[in-house]
Amino acid sequence: MTETFQDRHGLHGIMARFADPEQLLEAANRAYGAGYRKMDAYTPMPIEGLAEAIGFTRHWVSLVVLMGGLAGCVGGFGLLWWIAVIAYPHNVGGRPFDSWPMFVPITFECTVLLAALSSVVGMLAMNKLPMPYHPVFNVQSFAERASVDRFFLCIESDDPKFDRAQTRAFLEQLDPEEVSEVEK
């Protein structure tokens, strides 16, 4: 039964469960050392160095935020300048239309607003969230405890080195609490 189901739908990967974040960190390091590249680790809180251990060293969140901030800054100032100089010029006691110091507060607020929005939207988009379905939740102990007190390492089936039996044997020697196959 299980075989036919998996043959039809395929495997997402093989997942090992650990009781301790340090154990997971070591397992991740060893998996990377053994040549696995397509994997992910799952923890109930951020663990320092874990992303680097699975070979994830570069993300673009800060760049996106910088872009958002710059857009807010230029857009905000541009809007005010256009209002005050072109669209609706007001002569207040002969003062210049282009009174840029008075535009600083709103320009600042626009900068912060767009930078903040782009940090959240950018982070979610790059994480591909919201995601209503993901195969890892098919593992029962993952669905129950991955967000509470257990630490998971999943080597994914599209890794070139992935082999159902060998990968399972590799994970088992890392002293996990449990190794399970993740159905797609």
Partner: peptide, 8 residues
Amino acid sequence: MGWRGSAK
């Protein structure tokens, strides 16, 4: 939103 605690 389907948060799953991935290290990435």
